[in-house]
Design a protein around this nucleic acid. Sequence first.
DNA 1: GGGTAATCGTGAATGACTCAAAATAGGCGC
DNA 2: GCGCCTATTTTGAGTCATTCACGATTACCC
Lengths: 148, 148
Amino acid sequence: MPSDLSADIRAAGLRVTRGRLQVLELLENAPHSDAESIHALLRDVDPDISIQSVHNILSALASAGLVRRIEPARSPARYERRLGDNHHHVVCTECGAIEDVDCVVGHAPCLTPSSTSGFTIATAEVNFWGVCPDCATVAETPVASPVA
Amino acid sequence: MPSDLSADIRAAGLRVTRGRLQVLELLENAPHSDAESIHALLRDVDPDISIQSVHNILSALASAGLVRRIEPARSPARYERRLGDNHHHVVCTECGAIEDVDCVVGHAPCLTPSSTSGFTIATAEVNFWGVCPDCATVAETPVASPVA
DNA sequence: GGGTAATCGTGAATGACTCAAAATAGGCGC
DNA sequence: GCGCCTATTTTGAGTCATTCACGATTACCC
């Protein structure tokens, strides 16, 4: 079923290469992966791929609009393939796990700040910080001050 | 009038040192500064201060809750002294300039995601991405795809 | 199938930050 | 005001994710 990935890539004006196909396919199954884990998974299929190529591929895909790059504080950049819908993320302050959060309120209520200070707003990004179920069970101790 | 800064520092359980006072004072005048520019400004007053000390001071102040650390993607960590009120930021996709944005809606409407995926949400962070007035005048050309 | 430019591999380099150990200085009790 | 103890700073090296440069390879158009 990865056949139309090629079409996507080509439609974005990029050449279709094995690496790019693999990265896209991989991001379907493992969203929110960072460059290093993508590299690790890719090596299973193509042992010769280098981490630089992964960065290369990812930034090509990102600037072509095929993947979205998210960079939570304290964590390497991660990539995901869900595009178009403006959804947000929950990040675990303990282990860095990321999950998607749909913007219930339909279409960006928070997208309109009160005073833009003259800025021309293009996008809004919402990140929720908390503790994921796994880490919550491990550490009962309420954490000090993770973000603020 | 920087006299009660000492009190603030002490109240947080930290020792009052010259560097910390200077950093706090500096952040009043130049909010959203990153470690490097803080270092540069500090050298005017105290030429012997090292960049590591600046990092040290900043992380001490941050974990004591005296400053807030903000880390927009594609930009080194920045620090500000506005605390308590949950305000957000506009970041210029061109030059990285940051301005404060008050959360009009009183108290965090966006703070409540639809499904938390089992996460225990602690804080929410909202970043707006756009083009600042300065960069808007310089480049009339609408930019490709800066963030998304 | 051949040519050409995009893409990948290799290697080195950068920026921002962290870690470790020795030198210094703040603030407590006296 | 004086010393002591420990928090903080300094100095220096090291880490991590990412980027840059350039030659080798490969996809795609004809």
